[in-house]
């Protein structure tokens, strides 16, 4: 069973994937996210950090045995067990499919829409409107898939659910108000089922679904 | 052993990953990329295609047994064997790490730099210059890693090499002229070693490394 330390800044949705996976697998995971263990912008710029993790990005994982890993999906995979990884080639491939879907289809439009509401990037009306349409398209694909399913792959939680839930967190917390998410009831049912799992709650705490779409923070 | 059909347009670097994986694993793979089997922009918009592949993007895979998969990394994984997937948790996680690295660190700056030279997107001087710097950073990370290694993970070709080689194809063919790639000799040695493997050559044919950096196609 894997054991080691996850270095990240606090409240990092990319790190949540690994933390939730460890809750399911029982992997012994320490999280270094605040001083003195880890100071974002300093620790990850030190020569010793960069010699193991040359991109200088977080999250990164360092096993008690010295095994080093970067890229959040790889870390979440390493800290998982077979139940989360998929017990057949088909299941493992489908889990990988949804993890890729989260990174390539959800994160770009979700960030374009949410970041201006947090004051992180400049608001751009056209980009935001296009991102909203992209998010609708993506939620439509998920809603269709979840029409007859409780979880994304197979009959129980897998890395697919963990990865996609974490990629949707900011959307559900910040902008998916009830009227916007109404057409995607299967997705919201699935999302709430997941975040209410003990292992998700242990990492995410109470996740409050947004009741009023946040506007950009001028 | 998996068997089925890959739907894509011709010369799609994302589809190459699955095709090369099948060369190594012996999976029976048919490629539908030209009429009448497949016409990009038409077939992938038909209701029957969209019912199996709701994103309408390619490549997609349909097994002879009806098993459907989208997202190129998932398809390449499904068509692989254990040697390509990694024979331990550590190896599999490292392979996943490099596949994520390709998608998140290589593709964005590579597309920004190469697309204008192909006439795919408008040239933007600042974006191109920034992309060149990111490509240098990424090649530096790879060059460091390959300083003491023949392949990215373990002692033989894996999905990591296949995925990263395919994500670098356009760069090496279009803009990485000798003077630009000179500081990254380990990467070029590794890249040439891979494309000269029989299984890569069977799919890619002769890959000619660029000798003059292409400029944007006004």
């Amino acid at each position: 069973m894997a054991a080691g330390t996850l270095y990240t800044y606090p409240e990092n949705w990319r790190a949540f994937k690994a933390q939730i996976a460890a809750q399911y697998s029982g992997a012994q995971l320490k999280v270094a996210s605040t001083p003195p263990a880890f100071t974002f912008g300093q620790t990850n710029r030190t020569p010793s950090f960069l010699s193991s993790f040359p991109l200088g990005k977080v999250p990164v994982f360092q096993g008690d045995d010295g095994f080093c890993l970067f890229e959040s999906n790889a870390i979440a995979y390493y800290l998982s067990n077979e139940a989360l990884r998929g017990s057949s080639s088909e299941a493992s491939a489908q889990i990988m499919q949804w993890a890729s879907f989260a990174d390539s289809e959800i994160i770009p439009p979700a960030s374009t829409w949410v970041f201006p509401t947090l004051g992180i990037i400049q608001y751009n009306k056209q980009a935001t409107e296009q991102a909203k349409e992209e998010v609708k398209r993506v939620l439509g694909v998920l809603n269709q898939h979840l029409n007859t399913r409780t979880f994304l792959v197979g009959e129980r939680v897998s890395l697919a659910d963990i990865t996609v839930v974490c990629s949707l967190l900011w959307l559900y917390k910040q902008v998916l108000e009830p009227s916007f998410r109404q057409p995607f009831a299967n997705v919201t049912r699935w999302f709430v089922t997941c975040i209410n799992q003990r292992q998700f709650k242990a990492v995410l705490g109470e996740v409050k679904l947004c009741d009023k779409m946040a506007q950009f923070d001028a | 052993m998996a068997a089925g059909t890959l739907y894509t347009y011709p010369e799609n670097w994302r589809a190459f990953k699955a095709q090369i994986a099948a060369q190594y694993s012996g999976a029976q793979l048919k490629v539908a990329s030209t009429p009448p089997a497949f016409t990009f922009g038409q077939t992938n918009r038909t209701p029957s295609f969209l019912s199996s592949f709701p994103l309408g993007k390619v490549p997609v895979f349909q097994g002879d047994d009806g098993f459907c998969l989208f997202e190129s990394n998932a398809i390449a994984y499904y068509l692989s064997n254990e040697a390509l997937r990694g024979s331990s948790s550590e190896a599999s996680a490292q392979i996943m790490q490099w596949a994520s690295f390709a998608d998140s660190e290589i593709i964005p700056p590579a597309s920004t730099w190469v697309f204008p030279t192909l006439g795919i997107i408008q040239y933007n001087k600042q974006a191109t210059e920034q992309a060149k710097e990111e490509v240098k950073r990424v090649l530096g990370v790879l060059n460091q890693h390959l300083n003491t290694r023949t392949f990215l993970v373990g002692e033989r070709v894996s999905l990591a090499d296949i995925t990263v080689v395919c994500s670098l194809l356009w760069l090496y063919k279009q803009v990485l002229e000798p003077s630009f790639r000179q500081p990254f000799a380990n990467v070029t040695r590794w890249f040439v070693t891979c494309i000269n493997q029989r299984q890569f050559k069977a799919v890619l044919g002769e890959v000619k490394l660029c000798d003059k950096m292409a400029q944007f196609d006004a």
Binding site: P10, I107, E134 | K57, F115
Partner: peptide, 30 residues
């Protein structure tokens, strides 16, 4: 969390690039 999130590198233009690539290859493939 917001302060850290601003350090994340996101490919905001990915959708535009996907669209441009699709149009290009639809053109190439008639």
């Amino acid at each position: 969390a917001v302060q850290y999130l601003s350090q994340e590198k996101i490919w905001f233009e990915k959708t535009q690039y996907d669209e441009a690539e699709r149009r290009f290859y639809e053109g190439v493939n008639g």
